[in-house]
Design a protein around this nucleic acid. Structure first.
Lengths: 347, 347
DNA sequence: CTGTTAGCGCCTTCAC
DNA sequence: GTGAAGGCGCTAACAG
């Protein structure tokens, strides 16, 4: 075994089986016009030689590769990991293969360029369709269907899946307001991301609805990282009149905020309530377990992939946009505000 | 913009620029024998049309694609995520692209088959070299260089990177023994994995070295998952004479063991000491922070990729095996055994 | 410097 | 049922 010096091709199989390449091609693609014994002979030779057709050559000629392309910013980010999980489930369920490219960290900027490059790389070959996670670009040149998960802007030309971020944020805020909080800090995500803007809108919606005038000092801008969440929270807690609760636009930021609170000698939830967004698995194990808004990320991945595969199989090219409902998950990072404020400035 | 009906090819560019396809190909590959103005003309047309060459076609013809293939069991597994992080760093550092296939969950069995299939799929085309993470198969038919990370068996034909599992396990055990523990339980990984077997060897080495006769009842077999770790720990704790410490063959198992201890009313580390293996990021945040053996997984990914790229560029095909040193990281999940045993059966 | 020619490995007509 | 020929998009000779 080991490394053979030359890769074996369909020609080798044909020669070994004593048939022509087209016959081998036929059994490879399960055509029904092949004699049973010929087919078996070829199959056994294939098995013996350990032959598998080259994706490159196959995709060059035929538009059916059975592989879905995935372009994803970052494989370490918890959000991405969850999405991939869902995508993978769908891939297995529909018997496709998954081929993934990383477009560079979510935070990184020159990403749109890489994305475009990869889409074109796969363009009309290699893959039957492409899933792009949190695309920075909004338009791609592609022949194959394309599904965008959590796009950074509305992109009407493709299949899209995005959570009801605004409604979800509103729900989180209503919970906090219902607990009696009035000074509620906000730790935002990057404003160039659609989901981040929508969550800020939800934050403002809820305040307005409860007749609380938004205080600009309470609105900070993070970047969805733990570190940024920490420094935003520090900034909020250093305010002359600090918030009694913080709504962070994602769980990572919320974790950072909890860290910051602890460092400031504050106890969560007794001294400060915190709500996140995403419901990443760590939220359960965190200390304290984090109250957060679930956006069913795994399902987002699944649904997007399923939509894509249907589009491929039906040859349709309509652009559906699926809105994934969100749900508030109450755990232990929030408390009602009955006379807690005097407690704030110990340290 | 949006989705164009037909993907544009090098022919389109040639026609639009008024040159031949080979000229376009030359500027595409930065050949230096092209007139400056011709080159600029072509480049501007390329930019205008948003053209990018098809990986499939290119790789079919030339053996230089600038992309590294990655075959990885599972993108959710913390170990894999870490490895990918290192691989990604190397990819960026050496200016390659990364194309990843998932071969199916680490636990899953029919994986070797998928692995082989993917290797052959990429075989001699698409990628300049392949990294396989925890390969189940030990031999592949490939023309291009191949690097195996944490192989499930010795594979002398390829580049390999594996941690010094045995020494690492011994170090963990020596620490526990030094703390006074004598009844130390072991939660193993799947015995078909080389690293799991090596860690068990390290466990036994250390006991022998300290003249403690290994008790078979203390050795359980998990599968590197949290759930298995939990049930193995339950089994150990239910023993007539339960262990005072547990060495788990990976961090996930250790987390499961801590859960089980807590459920049994035991406090870690006061009632039970636990050591893991891997040093995944969660180990720091866990309650209690986990003492574990770092195997520098990120670096394993980096080193493997670097070795692979060097092999590609130098055209060499020697099979180096790199042993990644391990290091014990002491945190808060262990305690010395001074008169703690009467404490064991409260609940 | 640039165009022409010949394939890379495979699938798809079209004959037989 | 099966084989022979043509071409997918591209690069690597070879001419000019």
């Amino acid at each position: 075994m080991g490394r053979s010096s030359k890769s074996i091709t369909i020609q080798d199989v044909a020669r070994a089986a004593g048939v022509s390449v087209s016959t081998v091609s036929r059994v490879l693609n399960n055509k029904d016009d092949v004699a049973l014994d010929t087919s078996q002979k070829v199959r056994s030779v294939i098995a013996e030689l350990g032959y598998a057709s080259s994706l490159a050559a196959k995709s060059l000629r035929s538009r059916q590769t059975g592989v879905i392309g995935l372009i994803i910013p970052d494989l370490e980010d918890p959000f991405c990991i969850q999405v991939v999980k869902g995508i993978h489930q769908a891939i297995v369920a529909f018997n496709y293969d998954l081929l993934a490219f990383t477009s560079g960290s979510i935070k990184q900027h020159s990403r749109a360029e890489r994305e475009r490059r990869y889409v074109t790389l796969l363009n009309g070959s290699l893959t039957d369709g492409i899933v792009v996670v949190t695309p920075a670009a909004i338009s791609f040149s592609t022949v194959a269907p394309l599904a965008a998960i959590d796009p950074n802007d509305h992109c009407p030309d493709y299949l899209t899946v995005i959570a009801t971020n605004r409604a979800g944020a509103r729900a989180a805020m209503e919970y906090l307001l219902g607990l009696g909080h009035r000074r509620i800090g906000f730790i935002g995500g990057r404003p160039d991301l659609l989901c981040a803007r929508q969550r800020l809108q939800g934050y403002e919606d809820a305040l307005r609805q409860s007749n609380v005038t938004p205080d600009p000092a309470l609105i900070t801008i993070g970047n969805f990282t733990r570190a940024a969440g920490r420094s935003c929270a520090q900034q909020l807690l250093a305010l002359p009149e600090p918030p009694t609760a913080i709504f962070a636009a994602n769980d990572q930021s919320a974790f950072g905020a909890i860290e910051a609170a602890r460092e400031a000698g504050l106890h969560v939830p007794d001294d400060l309530s915190i709500v996140g967004f995403d419901n990443v698995p760590e939220a359960v194990y965190f200390n304290p377990p984090l109250t957060t808004v679930d956006q069913f990320v795994v399902k987002m991945g699944y649904v997007a992939t399923e939509m894509l595969i249907r589009a491929i199989q039906e040859g349709s090219s309509e652009s559906i946009s699926y809105e994934m409902p969100t749900q508030l998950v109450i755990r232990e990072s929030c408390r009602a505000t009955v006379g807690k404020s005097w407690n704030r400035n110990r340290a």
